[in-house]
Simulated assay, not measured.
Amino acid sequence: MKTQSIFSNIVLYGRSTWQIVRSRLSPKKGIEDILNYRYISDKLATSGQPTVAELELISQAGYKTILNLAPPTASNALPEEQAIATNLGMDYINIPVVWDNPTMADFTQFCDVMEKHRSRLIFVHCAMNMRVSAFIYLYRYLKLGVPASEAYSAMKTVWEPNATWQQFIETAIASN
Rank of each mutant, 00 (worst) to 15 (best):
Q19D: 15
E81C: 13
E160F: 14
E32I: 02
W165K: 06
T73M: 07
N94E: 12
K2A: 11
D100K: 07
T3M: 11
V52A: 11
S119W: 00
L35C: 07
M128C: 12
M90Q: 00
G145P: 00
L121I: 00
V158P: 07
A154G: 07
M90H: 00
N76F: 05
S47F: 01
T17R: 06
Y141T: 00
A74R: 03
I122C: 11
R22D: 04
I93R: 11
K143D: 12
D91K: 13
K29Q: 12
S119P: 03
Q167C: 09
M104P: 02
I84W: 03
T103I: 01
Y139A: 01
Q109M: 10
M130Y: 10
L88A: 02
W18V: 15
T73L: 05
V98Q: 05
P27T: 14
R24A: 09
S59G: 11
A83Q: 14
P147S: 04
V21I: 15
A45L: 05
I20R: 08
Y37V: 00
Q4L: 14
T157F: 07
Y13G: 11
R120L: 09
R131K: 14
G14N: 08
F168D: 02
E80C: 09
I93E: 12
N94Q: 15
L12H: 06
A85N: 02
Q49Y: 03
Q19G: 12
P72H: 09
G62W: 07
L69E: 08
V52H: 08
M155F: 06
L55T: 03
I136R: 01
T3F: 14
S47H: 05
H125W: 02
I31W: 01
A148I: 03
K2Q: 10
S149I: 14
L25V: 10
F110Y: 12
N9Y: 11
N176H: 15
M155I: 06
A61F: 02
I6H: 06
E150I: 13
T65N: 01
K29L: 12
V146C: 05
V146T: 11
A61H: 01
K116H: 07
A70G: 06
I58G: 08
Y39W: 05
I136P: 01
A74T: 08
S26E: 13
S59Y: 00
A77H: 12
L138T: 01
V11M: 13
A148D: 09
V158W: 03
V158I: 15
Q60W: 04
S59Q: 02
N129I: 08
P50N: 07
E81H: 09
G30D: 10
T108H: 09
V158R: 03
S5V: 13
V52I: 14
S26H: 13
T103Q: 04
M114F: 04
T17Q: 06
W165A: 04
M128L: 14
A74F: 10
M155G: 07
C111T: 10
I10M: 13
Q4C: 09
V113H: 14
E80K: 13
I58V: 15
Q82A: 15
N36A: 08
D112H: 09
I58K: 00
A61S: 10
I20L: 14
D106Y: 03
G89F: 02
T164Y: 02
T157D: 11
Q19W: 07
R131I: 09
S153D: 11
Y139W: 08
A154I: 02
L121N: 04
T3A: 15
N129C: 13
F7A: 15
L67Q: 01
N101K: 14
L35W: 02
P79K: 12
C111A: 06
